[in-house]
Write a protein that binds this DNA or RNA. Structure first.
Length: 306
RNA sequence: CGCGGGGUAGAGAAAUGGCAUCUCGCAAGGCUCAUAACCUUGAGAUUGGCGGUUCGAAUCCGCCCCCCGCAA
């Protein structure tokens, strides 16, 4: 199988490595242009570009993917494989490869279509999720399903761990299914569009913690939002990122957001149970454990998250 | 020159010109049936670096290095 890959984040890398290992030919990686990043606004290449260059694979970074049309036609790929590219790809491009274009999606479609399926599964407290391969059409995450593969979400999973698991699962599914798909052995079946649900792109503003929610809701929120875009609250007018919590089997008679000393460190009251703060990052500081943070707090009695 | 916070003992924080302090951790001892609890004692610091002002600088001035939050 000869294919072209379009993607930007690390998500597709295990898949690419696996497919190449199996002897498939990766003709070209299409990725987003280098973007200014960080405080110094240094131009930085996407993870896919860095990887592809390390493998001596051709890279294309069109501002609009339409501009890559001629290059794609010329290479005559069997397939265009897309994972976390970050741009809507028009039908003209999707139809160029002989076997069309396939998207790797981080949920069991039609559930959690859109930009943040992995986070959505965590935020909603799902106990399982998975990978879906679909034939791409002009609507987002809408095309017929080639294959799905489910995995369990454990209580310990956060975005980083689940992302990693799913990217590795994607590699296995692609290696199993894509060769047969391009040979026409496997057919795709339409989604049940009536049961589709959608996720939006997460923003920093959405990361603010509402301490009047339940401990479970807050914990799921934090699991789904970290490390990006992150969850935060304020203490004494200053921004504090909350990087990790643990639900305590303890409910104090206090206002939501109230901080207090617990045998295992710093605890905070929610709507119901309290949460143990395991990792935080105050504005202007490095990340630290909840206990370290507690050591530096004066007047704890008067402190509460807002 | 986008805006801003910060660098003090292993960790987190005080101290705004005059003996570097507190909480945690660490070590030794005590109490205890026992302990993450409590009590004693102790070790651990060139206060990011260089220069300047001063009788005296963590503190004031200048330059440099490093870390981080926001924004993009």
């Amino acid at each position: 199988m000869k294919f072209i890959f379009a993607g930007t984040t690390e998500f597709g890398i295990p898949t690419l490595e696996k497919l190449m290992q199996d002897g498939h030919e990766l003709l070209l990686c299409i990725t987003q242009p280098d973007k200014p990043v960080g405080r110094k606004q240094q131009l930085s290449p996407s993870p896919i570009k860095v990887w592809a260059q390390g493998q001596n694979i051709r890279v294309s970074q069109p501002a609009k993917i339409m501009d890559a049309g001629p290059e794609i036609s010329e290479l005559k790929p069997d397939l265009l494989l897309v994972a976390a590219y970050g741009q809507i790809i028009p039908k003209e491009i999707l139809d160029l490869p002989e076997k069309g274009s396939v998207n790797i999606h981080g949920s069991i479609l039609p559930k959690y279509r859109g930009a943040s399926p992995i986070q959505a599964a965590l935020i909603n407290g799902e106990t399982s999720t998975g990978i879906t391969l679909i034939v791409m059409d002009e609507k987002m995450d809408h095309g017929p399903i080639i294959a799905t593969k489910e995995i369990t979400i454990t209580a310990d999973d956060d975005f980083s761990s689940l992302y990693k698991k799913l990217s590795q699962l994607a590699a296995l599914v692609c290696a199993d299914i894509l060769p047969e798909y391009t040979q026409g052995i496997i057919k795709a079946n339409p989604q049940n569009h009536d049961s589709a649900t959608y996720t939006k792109l997460l923003t920093k503003a959405d990361g603010q913690i509402d301490w009047t929610h339940t401990a479970l809701e807050i914990s799921n929120h934090i699991r789904g939002y970290n490390p990006e875009p992150g969850t935060w609250t304020t203490l004494d007018g200053k921004l504090i990122k909350i990087l990790g919590v643990k639900i305590l089997n303890e409910s104090k008679i206090e206002l939501p957001g109230k901080l207090y000393r617990h045998a295992d460190g710093l605890a905070v009251k929610s709507q119901d149970n309290s949460l143990l703060i395991t990792k935080v990052q105050p504005e202007g500081k490095n990340p630290m454990s909840g206990r370290d943070f507690l050591n530096g707090i004066k007047n704890l009695d008067r402190m509460h998250f807002v």
